[in-house]
Amino acid sequence: MSTQDPYAFLKAILTKDFETGSPHINGKPHDPLIITLSRDYGARGEVIAERLASCLAIPLYDQEILERVAKQAKIDAFKFKPQDETVSAGISTFLYSLMTGTAGEMQTYRRQLYATVLELAKQDGLLVGRGAHLILSGRKVFRVRIVGSKLVCAKRVAEEQGIPQLEAERKVYEVNTKRHKSILNLYGDSFEQCSLEHAQNFDLVINTDHISAESAVSLILLALRQAGFELHRRIPPT
Rank of each mutant, 00 (worst) to 15 (best):
S2V: 12
Q4N: 06
Q4Y: 11
A8G: 05
L10A: 09
I13G: 03
F18Y: 15
T20E: 14
G21T: 11
G27S: 07
P29I: 15
P32F: 06
L37S: 04
S38N: 03
D40E: 15
G42S: 01
R44I: 14
G45T: 02
E46W: 01
L52I: 00
L52T: 04
A53K: 02
C55A: 14
Q63N: 09
E64N: 15
L66K: 04
Q83W: 04
S88C: 07
T100P: 00
G101M: 05
A103K: 14
A103T: 08
M106W: 15
Q107G: 08
Q107P: 05
Y109H: 12
R110I: 10
R111Q: 15
L118Q: 04
E119W: 03
L120P: 02
D124T: 08
G129K: 05
I135Y: 08
I135R: 04
V144Y: 05
I146D: 01
C153P: 00
C153G: 00
A154S: 15
R156M: 08
Q161V: 06
I163D: 03
E167L: 02
E167M: 05
K178C: 10
R179N: 06
R179W: 09
H180R: 11
K181L: 10
L186Y: 09
Q193C: 10
S195F: 05
L196P: 08
H198T: 09
L204K: 12
T208K: 07
S215A: 15
L222S: 13
G228E: 08
